[in-house]
């Protein structure tokens, strides 16, 4: 049953388990870079959407609606096929790039911007769930708006949103599978390739299922540890 993973895809090619492992590497790398983009931009947008300046709020809202309402597969297609076709400068840039690098960058940017919209929604609701009194207390102490966010609101908001952020992280890892559509050789691409070449779909997808569950569960456990570490006694998960 497992000997298939120790067979070569074709003469001179790596063994199947090595192919899957290299796919896993791309999956993790894509998820990690995309998460950094998503967390940074998502936090920024989330904060902006709770500020007093109505213009900034509108821009933030428009971003979220745009990226949240377009299917991820469509976004991949737009980033990879449409954008370079529209702008000659972009096309020149991507043609000079190594094709694999281009696929990787596209996947990170696409997933990062998509997930940023969702994280921004969580950050916004996290800040919104803190009572108005805390913000006022900050101002009463003479803190500026930026200082109030940095020292009063955000430290609590991030703690509050750890559970939804955990599922978003797991979603992001699983969403990397859609990068197969632009030909990025990540885990799902390799799984399909293995199925198509050997016709042993059960083996290929069985292995992929186990790997995806393992990495998503690992992310879950890590986030759980972080949640415990940073818990404020008497607040939500810090109750115990």
């Amino acid at each position: 049953m497992f000997d298939l993973f120790f067979q070569s895809s074709s003469e001179g090619e790596p063994l199947w388990w090595q192919m899957l492992a290299s796919g896993l590497g791309w999956t993790l790398a894509t998820a990690a870079v995309a998460w950094v983009i998503a967390f940074t931009l998502g936090s920024f947008l989330g904060v902006v959407r709770t500020m007093k300046n109505q213009w900034l709020v509108n821009i933030g809202n428009a971003y979220v609606e745009l990226f949240r309402n377009i299917p991820l597969l469509v976004q991949f297609f737009v980033w990879y096929f449409v954008l370079p076709g529209l702008f000659p400068a972009v096309k020149k840039m991507v043609n000079d790039m190594d094709p694999t690098t281009h696929q990787f960058v596209t996947a990170c940017v696409c997933l990062g911007l998509f997930t940023a919209a969702r994280i921004s929604e969580q950050v916004r609701s996290g800040i919104g769930s803190i009572s108005q009194g805390q913000r006022n207390a900050g101002y009463a102490l003479g803190l500026t708006e930026a200082q109030t966010y940095r020292h009063v609101l955000l430290p609590m908001a991030y703690r509050i949103i750890i559970p939804p952020l955990t599922s978003e992280t797991m979603n992001l890892i699983k969403n990397t599978a859609t990068a197969y559509s632009i030909g990025l050789v990540e885990l799902f691409f390799r799984t399909r390739e293995m199925g198509e070449t050997t016709f042993q779909y059960f083996h290929a997808f069985g292995a992929a299922t186990v790997i995806y569950i393992t990495i998503a569960m690992t992310a879950n456990i890590i986030m759980g540890i972080i949640e415990k570490r940073v818990a404020v006694p008497g607040y939500i998960s810090g109750a115990k």
Binding site: S9, S10, E13, F189, R192, E193, E196, T197
Partner: peptide, 12 residues
């Protein structure tokens, strides 16, 4: 195109 016999042929 992925999933076609051309992939293996071309690799070869």
């Amino acid at each position: 195109t992925s999933g076609t016999t051309s992939v293996a042929l071309f690799k070869k």
